[in-house]
Design a protein around this nucleic acid. Structure first.
Lengths: 344, 344
DNA sequence: TTGAAAGCGCTACCAT
DNA sequence: ATGGTAGCGCTTTCAA
């Protein structure tokens, strides 16, 4: 197997020093147009590709960012299309700026992030961690640019991309209330109520829910909180619990996948949506417009969220000015077929 | 900002040479237990992390693999949960073997794969390319371990992970035929019929469809092929075309997302599934069990596919014995609610 | 405008 | 069992 072509080969072929070759590769100027042309030509002929590993060793810049996503029980990444959309945005944004991305599923409890130093990552996008999580402290020690997505960290030192979660949740709830619903079950995810404040996104949405209730003068009832995983399965299983509650007429799932689970189980049990129960989700997955009935939901632009995060990260890395460290993307209730007037 | 701790610091602190430190890091043995312990202790104290970039420069091994996925029009990765499941499998398998993965969306027409040499990638997982594609030749030049997923390359030199596409398609079609259907429209994706042989997966499935028809003595009718994108939108749009065809009673979509699009449009037009039309998909996305009605489909284990691919790749990289270069994973018709007896 | 050379952090060979 | 050192491919300073 023949050795790779290095900068030395190019220099020899061109009869110049490697320093000069380096200068043309890196467009430093200070090379005569003539030799520049010649070297470029030779690079092309030889099919030379600079070795980023070597460059990185010297410059301490890898043009590589990490995207970390929490994994579930057996070490598998979460089965929610949300992440794919987010990743699509990040990937696209990174590609535009000639960065590459390393994707990693992490176990928050044990991850040390040693790969960040090992790989000399220039930055990190961290998805869905929370105030008080063990990872925050470890991440701080890394001392590299980080953008947190959906994480709600209190300190305004952190760069964050979030969503108008509270407002979106408020709108969803208000929307249901205006339809006449007052007993509204919520699927918050698998978190005990007293732990909610530690789960930023869920907490915000919970607050939004309470905001709307309060505004309408409806008493908050913690029985309405269903604590099951944010997943199809979780949504599915939640229905049996909801039916044990009295007079519930609407369900607000903090995720679209959860809402889809609800729809399935409702249908199995012969419960009519939206005639008997209204269901609203959160996310507006592209698939949510294709369920039957189509899902009313709080829409966010997930791909845009990924792009916003990576843009903020790369700007940070490149030392560009960043107007604000915390960005909150807007939401929008999309009215479809799973919601309707309260039956009573 | 303080400089990172290097092997030199560890060596100094321990009063040994860097060679010895290197030996303990790489578990080469030939170090006395006593010094080994000591060095390990110091590494821990100092919080030293080896610099993989430097190691890589020396060893020419990056412990990094690439996963490349074709992008759509505006440079966005395809909006199909399939890829996320596949990625989940790859990521999990890579993590188990301490490899990291770089994910890249590529434009097949222009991609040169220069990043492979630049980053010294140890291997590549290539998804959904095809015989005769421009990328094959370029990939060959790379001269690194590659595993092709869903690619159907003729030469048995290539390492490939595929599916029993033809058989799965045969089973799906046969299943419909046994229900009494004979006019079965198929959604192949956006490929002209005469180009099908160049699209491995689609071609195989097309062949399987024809196999079943032939077996049942049903004439093949190329009008039954609907050429629209493999997507929710494509499936949705296909319905209007299908309805122009005479006597069609069943639709076989080569993807679940396509089938979901069909379901939506059918419902909008008041067409009953499965009473008037049977619909069957392909993939068994986790979401397909949550549509309404739930989707009959040809099931494949996508996560397992990703794992199989990465395992084969890493075995190749590590020089392990690989029993066979081409693996075909099995499929399985999952009968749900979108299919039923032919109305006539 | 160009070149010589140091050195990034590490591994691996060869000595001791 | 341990150490000295060349060198991986590149960037960067300094000198010419």
């Amino acid at each position: 197997m023949k050795k790779d072509i290095s900068i030395v080969d190019v220099a020899e072929e061109a009869g110049v020093s490697i320093a000069t070759v380096s200068n043309v590769i890196n467009q430093k100027g200070r090379v005569s147009e003539k030799t520049r042309k010649k070297i470029l030509q030779i690079i092309d002929n030889l099919g030379y590709t600079p070795n980023l590993t070597a460059r990185n060793l010297k410059t301490r810049r890898s043009d590589l960012i990490g995207m970390v996503i929490p994994v579930m029980k057996p070490g598998r990444m979460q089965d929610n299309p949300f992440y794919w959309d987010l990743l699509a945005g990040v990937e696209e944004g990174a590609r535009d700026r000639r960065f590459h991305i390393i994707l990693m599923g992490i176990d928050e409890a044990t991850e040390t992030f040693s790969f960040v130093k090992e790989r000399q990552l220039d930055g990190l996008i961290v998805v869905g961690t929370n105030e008080g999580s063990q990872v925050i402290e470890r991440l701080n020690k890394l001392n590299i640019p980080i953008v947190f997505v959906d994480s709600y960290l209190a300190s305004d030192e952190y760069y964050q991309v979030c969503l108008e979660d509270r407002y979106g949740s408020y709108c969803a709830t208000k929307y249901l209330i205006e339809l006449g619903h007052s007993k509204i079950a919520i699927l918050t995810g698998e978190v005990p109520e007293d732990q909610l404040p530690n789960y930023g996104v869920l907490h915000e949405r919970w607050l939004g829910y309470k905001d709307a209730l309060a505004e309408a003068g409806i008493a908050y009832d913690s029985q309405m909180i269903i604590q099951l995983p944010t997943s199809l399965e979780g949504g599915y299983r939640s229905v049996d619990r909801i039916l044990q509650l009295t007079d519930v007429t609407a369900v607000f799932s903090f995720s679209d996948v959860g809402a889809m689970g609800v729809l399935k189980r409702m249908k199995e049990l012969g419960k009519k949506v939206p005639e008997e129960y209204s269901v609203i989700g959160f996310d507006n997955l592209f698939i949510s417009n294709y369920t039957s009935p189509t899902l009313t939901t709080v829409a966010q632009d997930i791909v845009q969220k990924g792009k916003a995060a990576v843009t903020m990260l790369l700007d940070q890395i490149d030392g560009n000015h960043i107007p604000q460290r915390k960005v909150s993307l807007s939401v929008d209730v999309v009215e479809r077929e799973t919601t309707g007037p309260c039956k009573w």
